[in-house]
């Protein structure tokens, strides 16, 4: 099986975001691999390991720092990677076209993973647009994946607490959700091995893709300060526990 995993670099969620020129994030801050993509890589490696002769290929579109992310993807188990070099922003329509062109150039996919969204732009579009271009099925927020002969059985989480089960023909695109697995982070030996793996560089000009008829442009990027002031739960232990349960049930909706 040939499994492609689309990975994106995003700003570290623990860092304070600095916006420059009103629409760009200061590139000097810490960037990490989009957390959903870590689930993709872990799942792809698991599927690959169960099928001898399979390979996992990480794909990323971006500037030179996308290479760092690809290096991490290689440490997390991808065999090789494709870096599509570009310094300018792309909307989801164009990104999907570029990803398709790169994958077409490289080989025939049996399975494509993307994160259910990127945590910076949260567009939730690229995977569907890519699926439309490739004319293959797409499912997002997958929490369970089981690959059988020519078929993928995928569970997704729709709303809190409800799960849907699907069967998809291969090739297909699966958008990984948080519940899919616990990401397996690289150990030092994995990092050592990753240093020798290939990052194939593709130039945007060399990729033949049709520009989309319409486009979307980001006009402004503003940071929003969230109020994180903790709210004490008051009262005697019995009242406090009741209040806590109420919050977990009704506000956080996790029980």
């Amino acid at each position: 099986m040939r499994i492609y995993v689309c990975v994106k670099q995003v700003p570290d969620t623990a860092a304070s975001i600095r916006v420059i020129e009103g629409k760009r994030i200061d590139e000097r801050m810490t960037f990490i691999i989009n957390p959903y993509d870590e689930h993709c890589l872990t799942e792809a490696a698991k599927i690959r390991d169960a099928r001898p002769g399979s390979e996992v290929i990480a794909v990323s579109l971006g500037g030179p720092s996308a290479r760092d992310i690809l290096r991490s993807a290689l440490a997390m188990g991808a065999e090789r990677s494709l870096h599509i070099q570009s310094e300018r922003p792309h909307d989801a329509m164009e990104t999907a076209r570029i990803l398709k062109a790169a994958i077409d150039l490289d080989g025939k996919p049996d399975l494509i993973f993307t994160g259910r969204e990127s945590i910076d732009s949260c567009g939730m579009q690229t995977m569907f647009r890519l699926g439309a271009l490739l004319q293959i099925p797409v499912l997002s927020n997958a929490v369970d994946v089981d690959i059988q002969e020519g078929e993928a059985f995928v569970s997704t989480e729709a709303e809190l607490g409800s799960r849907l089960q699907y069967s998809l023909s291969l090739p297909c695109i699966i958008g990984a959700g948080r519940g899919l697995n616990t990401p397996k982070y690289p150990t030092f030996p994995d990092i050592m091995k990753a240093r020798k793996k290939e990052i194939r560089t593709l130039d945007l000009q060399d990729l033949r893709f049709e520009p989309s008829a319409s486009s979307m442009e980001l006009l402004e990027l503003r940071t929003v300060a969230e109020d994180r002031t903790p709210r004490p739960i008051e009262g005697d232990p019995d009242t406090a526990v009741e209040e806590l349960i109420r919050i977990l049930e009704q506000e956080a909706r996790i029980i």
């Binding site: 691999i33 150990t187 030092f188």
Partner: peptide, 14 residues
């Protein structure tokens, strides 16, 4: 990670 080879190092600094 050299001393403890099974240490898994996440991407995100903590």
């Amino acid at each position: 990670g050299r001393r403890v080879e099974s240490l898994q190092v996440p991407e995100q600094p903590r």
